[in-house]
Simulated assay, not measured.
Amino acid sequence: MGLPDPDRTRVVLIGTAEYQHFPDSPAVHNNISRLAELFRSPHIGGLPAGHCVTAPDPTRADDVLDLVHQAASEATDTLVVYFAGHGMRLPDGSLYLALQNSEQGKKPYKSLAFNYVRNEMLEVWLPARW
């Protein structure tokens, strides 16, 4: 098995550095931008610019899920979805990715359910590979 084909690979880098109800994580901005540089570098990842998208400080789950859905629909080799920021566990054990206006233990609809990200990847990307 060789390296992923850059023309058939898609990457979505999601990072929340600034929060209203959580401590800020300023390093996330550099994290996401540097990862994007590496994925796009002709000497490292070699991805065309449009094949590696970033979502810095998202406020709406559906905006992020639209990016994941598009990337999953277009990837025919490798799909990478990366998140940097705070996470939250609900009492039922489900994991949520904290967005700018998320609140711990309150209003989970203001956060991004990890299960939604997972489902986009499994339902859109995985069936196209088999």
Rank of each mutant, 00 (worst) to 15 (best):
G50M: 03
L112W: 00
L13M: 14
Q104G: 10
L90E: 14
N30I: 11
M1A: 15
L90G: 15
C52V: 03
V124N: 01
F22P: 06
G105Q: 00
S111T: 03
R129W: 06
L79H: 11
P91T: 11
D77L: 07
D63S: 15
R60T: 14
C52N: 04
Q104M: 07
D66P: 01
H69G: 08
A36I: 00
R89Y: 09
A75E: 08
V68K: 09
P4Q: 06
L65R: 06
A128P: 03
D57K: 05
Y82M: 10
D5K: 12
R40M: 09
Y96S: 07
V12I: 15
N119V: 03
V68H: 08
K106Q: 09
Y109N: 05
H29W: 13
L65F: 08
L67K: 14
F22D: 12
S111F: 01
R60G: 04
K106W: 04
D57Q: 03
P108F: 02
L90H: 08
Q100H: 06
D7C: 15
T78S: 13
Y82P: 01
V80Q: 05
L35T: 08
D92Y: 01
L95T: 13
T76R: 15
W125R: 04
P4C: 10
L112T: 00
R34N: 11
F83E: 01
L38S: 03
N115Y: 10
P56D: 09
V124W: 02
V64T: 07
D77V: 03
I44F: 12
D77Y: 10
P91F: 04
T16R: 05
R118G: 00
